[in-house]
């Protein structure tokens, strides 16, 4: 055998192994109970669609479903950027039509997040929007996923997708109480700003206006913050005003609606107990 023969053999084995393993993993994507898998596998239809960043996970689905008797799909994800959130909502509408209600925590309009768009690469094969978003965000990752299909499945989103292969992801919520140290430190917090931009609000406004036009009751909210942290945020009022002006949809501000250390996991997130306190009030306000 020629001394160099192992090189094409390595390349061939690598290529075939990549395609075979990716094929198996792709079928796992479609079987997973993870919310985005359900969205793209045709099993995501819901009466109420929810969206936000990690704070949007405070829309605790088991409680909402029990209290309202309606099905939910929560598209929130940690550090969700507005463009990705918009793409997911448009994909939902294309597949399932308009839901009865769309509830959005507008504090998620505070960021772009290229990293998370990269993380959503397992789903780019199902969505032209996600695919082009990935291409614009990081062309090397985009082309990497075309060359090595396995590279779609190494990120955090893919890992969550595997984790929820045979169990629901709807009952996950931060399961802890804010630490004493954090509570103590909250006495001397630096001023904090939500980094929303008008461009981002306008772009997202187009998405939700399409929902409204299709008959969905769209509700914007600001989920609760830890009281001392809430006080340190300089521009929540202007966020609410700008969102209303740019989209025509009023914002219900619940940022001060929950108090007590026992209800918070940290400054920005309620724990399970706090989420139930909050949702009891919010659901009533939005007619559910």
């Amino acid at each position: 055998m020629k001394k160099w023969m192992w090189i094409p053999v390595v390349l061939l084995v690598t290529f075939l192994g990549d395609r075979l393993a990716a094929y198996l993993l792709t079928s796992a994507v479609e079987k997973s109970e993870f919310r985005y898998s359900r969205l793209y596998a045709g099993d995501g239809k819901a009466d109420i669609v929810l969206l936000g960043n990690s704070r949007g996970l405070n829309f605790f689905q088991p409680y909402i479903e029990e209290a309202t008797g309606k099905s939910t799909l929560n598209l929130s994800y940690n550090a969700m950027p507005a463009d990705l959130g918009g793409a997911l909502l448009r994909d939902y509408m294309d597949t399932y039509g308009a839901p009865e209600k769309l509830v959005v925590d507008v504090t998620f309009l505070d960021r772009d997040n290229e990293e998370l768009i990269r993380e959503f690469r397992p789903y780019a094969q199902y969505s032209e929007r996600l695919d082009s978003l990935l291409k614009i965000t990081d062309s090397s990752i985009y082309w990497g996923t075309k060359v090595a299909h396995l590279s779609r499945y190494g990120g955090e989103v893919a890992q969550r997708m595997f984790y929820y292969l045979s169990k629901s992801d709807e009952d996950w919520l931060l399961d802890r109480q804010i630490s004493k140290q954090m509570a103590e430190d909250s006495k001397s917090l630096e001023p904090y700003r939500n980094n929303y931009t008008l461009d981002r609000i306008r772009a997202f406004g187009k998405v939700v206006n399409a929902y409204q036009a299709a008959g969905t009751d769209v509700r914007f909210v600001i989920n609760p913050y830890y009281p001392a942290f809430q006080k340190s945020i300089m521009n929540l009022d202007s966020l609410a005003l700008d969102v209303r002006r740019e989209t025509g949809i009023p914002v219900l501000d619940y940022s001060k609606s929950v108090t007590g250390d026992q209800n918070f996991g940290d400054y920005q997130h309620l724990n399970k107990k706090g989420a139930e306190v909050y949702l009891a009030r919010m659901l009533k306000d939005i007619g559910l």
């Binding site: 053999v9 390595v10 084995v13 090397s140 990497g144």
Partner: peptide, 18 residues
């Protein structure tokens, strides 16, 4: 050699941060 190189390439493709 073939198996170990191919395995490393798969692992790099799967878990690598590029």
């Amino acid at each position: 050699r073939v198996v170990s190189f191919a395995s490393l390439l798969w692992l790099i493709a799967l878990f690598g941060v590029f």
